[in-house]
Write a protein that binds this DNA or RNA. Structure first.
Lengths: 199, 199, 199, 199
DNA sequence: GATGAATGAGTCTTCATTCAT
DNA sequence: GATGAATGAAGACTCATTCAT
């Protein structure tokens, strides 16, 4: 009996993921409002009505996407003692390997998050804060070890994260210079962040 | 005759602005798709149909907002020789005086820009690029004068701008730490950007 | 005083005709429902509102067109003793010189007449019946003179008229054979009507 | 499986016909433009939206009506050697049994066809030309057999058809004499067409 | 009398959601 | 559980008509 239930649960999870994959794809292409349930159903290869066996309504698809995000980890916490190298490799990871994930994410979720308080709350609590908590800890360790100047670690982490997010957005909306020199950004950012502009 | 025409033009411009003001407000509150023409008309205190005497369709309202943005100037180009002070005052200006403008702007326009290629093109060409061109010039002057390290000025400008944009977004979606310490950001950012993290 | 009134009346009549000319043109191009008051006003070179100084509403424009038609005479009653020649010349007149008038008329008025009982009544009473009365008289004279077989003159006149109307309609909807051989129709019709098909 | 598909197809066809029946009725009563989708839906006993599961838009309803017409056959091609009797019986068929079909058709389709080029093309190509081709063949045979004078068969067929169409239209707009003596028309027309007016 | 901006009722069409099969 | 036809509420947009200037 337990086996049957477990199998059931697995099937349900698989179907939910199938639907969320389709949803994130379609949301990214069209935006939340212009994406239709039919679009998502077709992309998932199922019938419209089936979606409602797994999600209460269209909004729940967004929350489902965010929940899933919060389970995967955007941030890899490799402890390193060389700040410059840590930052640089973290940036390269973001800038080289993740852009298509970011694309989907920013186009699918962000616009809605900006407009939907409930969603924003979920996103902040489930995705953003855990990630920041993790990085802050790293950062604080560096300060304690004297590798980094004693800045407000919470704000600094958020500022650096903001720069990354902002650059992704500028890329997404088609800022030509950023798109063209995307691969040089990890270096430039590392220099700015680590050494500052001042001569 | 010329007087009558001029009066006409003024009335038309006033009505257009009245409508755009309402549109940016409603778009910011509900997002483009969930904002209805009726919402906007009611907010503007006019009838639904009147909007169509001034704009061809709902999309044109967005383009109208962007066009108006591109005429106002987000950036004040005060030439200063003290990089730190220039940056700090620019940040304070953004962070203290403009947030409500930014709110409306980011909530009303950005989500659509992410999803609508045509809009994105207009935004980049009319708002972003002119502003970057201006700041790049300043920045290059500093480099030439030896006040700033010889970084790629175009990318650096965009990176700093990205940080500002990203922090606004994080604030908008309700990141609690940023909201709470918003007034300390100009200092923190200035420190990071000017001196870097490295001890 | 009387002079002023007469001048007034003339001006009003002229303005009404100017509007009706525009209306019949636009109705013919777009059909009654898809023609807008603005279309008509622009075609007439006046403002929308001015039309309402001369006609109560859009429907009255149609009635106005019909009233004007009933004042012009579609039928020229030249008395002739040669039936064949009379018919042939009447047909040539219709088929060669009037088609553009017919076009406008059929496209502008007929569709509405088919759907609007009140209009149909006006059209029948004011345009059709007077014309038929005139021709019937001719026709009856021919019968009395032994030039024509003693058929029911009223029905015969309507049948011949029906043929002309029907052929105009077939031409208007683009029946290719009729369009191509339009100039041969007077002869063919005359032969059919006068001699019949039978060998 | 094939059975299920066949059943599906039948259901779809039935629903389409149900909608087209309602559409032709409402179009006939109000004309295309003044007929609303809600009217048609109510007449068909379904919801507004359901119509759009079967037709892309209001225009497609008209095209659907025409397509269905082109599948039914207006013309019965009974070969007869007695021209007079053939014509008379054909006329009686039209004039006695079909008038209500004609009513709907002329009121629903004709007005639009006069104004809509695309529709006119479909109607001419799918309904009119096939019918004419059929009758022309008959007619040519009569000429070849010496039963009928050697007139231009194509134009003659169109002229006779024009008379029938024209008389239907005059009836529809309420010409009183035609309405009153409708049942005598087959005889009168037959006499005119077969023997001509000339004594 | 002429103007044309303002009005808002009315229409087509879309699409989230339901439910019988 | 899966399906997809049916539903009908909601929204963008049009346009006849009014009326202040």
């Amino acid at each position: 009996m337990a086996d049957v239930d477990a199998l059931q649960a697995q099937l349900v999870a698989a179907r939910r993921n199938q639907i969320l994959d389709a949803a994130i794809k379609v949301f990214a292409e069209k935006g939340f409002d212009r994406a239709t349930i039919r679009d998502i159903a077709k992309t998932a290869g199922i019938a419209d009505g089936t979606i409602y066996n797994y999600f209460d309504n269209k909004n729940e698809l967004l929350l489902g996407i965010i929940n899933r995000l919060s389970q995967s980890t955007f941030v890899q916490a490799e402890d390193m003692t060389n700040v410059r190298e840590w930052l640089r490799s973290a940036l390269v990871r973001h800038y080289e390997s993740l852009p298509s994930e970011y694309d989907k994410f920013f186009r699918a979720i962000f616009p809605e998050v900006l407009v939907n308080k409930e969603l924003a709350g979920s996103y902040v609590a489930q995705v953003l804060e855990p990630a920041y908590a993790l990085i802050e800890k790293c950062f604080q360790a560096w300060i304690d070890n004297g590798l980094v100047r004693p800045l407000d670690s919470a704000l600094t982490v958020r500022a650096v994260s903001g720069m990354i997010i902002g650059l992704h957005l500028l890329r997404l909306i088609g800022e030509p210079h950023i798109q063209e020199h995307w691969d040089r950004l990890p270096d430039v950012i590392t220099q700015i962040i680590v050494n500052g502009l001042k001569k």
